[in-house]
């Protein structure tokens, strides 16, 4: 049987762990943007992971959500290849795509950046989480117009039934712009 064990939710500059408020931006005014909010959360978590600052906004959002979810839980009971990460979103990597496109707009100043381009794939976020926690199990990233929890749970369940997945991080991590972003992560276990 598959059971839901942990969750994290981020939206409107607030982070919830297992539905209890975990972190919110002190100065909840319009001046705090995503960048300061997510950096504040990173500092609050007391992490030392310089790669965080190299991530794009989508990866930062998902990475912080995973950090909160795993802040009081270590998946040591499972082998790395038994832990799957399955995610979805709507806007793929739109903000980073636009940034990459800006860098190739002018043929006189044509400097596409490898560190921007690499984040133009949404599953890079899955990679970042797998690198941070050493997860080597199943991977999948879907694009859908909204968080389809039923499907995500169904897919996780199929992975569990295969007998090779014991834990699955499923979620929705979407970043459209400053005003429209959200992360929902659920940890499912056998």
């Amino acid at each position: 049987m598959m059971k839901f064990t942990q969750s994290c939710r981020i939206h409107e500059k607030k982070i919830y762990r297992n539905e209890a408020l975990f972190y919110s931006d002190q100065a909840l005014d319009d001046k705090t943007n995503f960048k300061t909010f997510i950096k504040g959360a990173y500092k609050y978590l007391g992490q030392s992971y310089p790669k965080f600052f190299k991530m794009d906004r989508l990866s930062k959002l998902g990475f912080i959500a995973a950090s909160v979810l795993f802040s009081d839980r270590v998946l040591s009971a499972y082998a790395p290849e038994e832990i799957a990460v399955v995610m979805a979103n709507r806007h793929s990597t739109l903000v980073t795509d636009t940034k990459h496109c800006e860098s190739i707009k002018n043929r006189e100043a044509y400097f596409p950046s490898p560190s921007v381009f690499v984040y133009t794939l949404p599953n890079i976020l899955v990679g970042e989480i797998c690198i941070r926690y050493g997860f080597k199990g199943e991977n999948a990233f879907f694009i859908s117009n909204q968080f389809d929890q039923d499907f995500m749970y169904q897919y996780a369940n199929l992975l569990f039934q295969s007998g090779e997945t014991k834990a699955c991080l499923v979620g929705w991590v979407d970043y459209k712009d400053e005003a429209d972003y959200s992360a929902i992560l659920h940890l499912l276990e056998t």
Binding site: P50, K54, A109, F111, P114, S115
Partner: peptide
């Protein structure tokens, strides 16, 4: 500094730009 292969490519962009 913990630099990696992408950083090396970024340095190439920096020198060119």
């Amino acid at each position: 500094l913990g630099l990696d292969s992408i950083d090396a490519l970024e340095l190439i962009v920096l020198l060119e730009r």
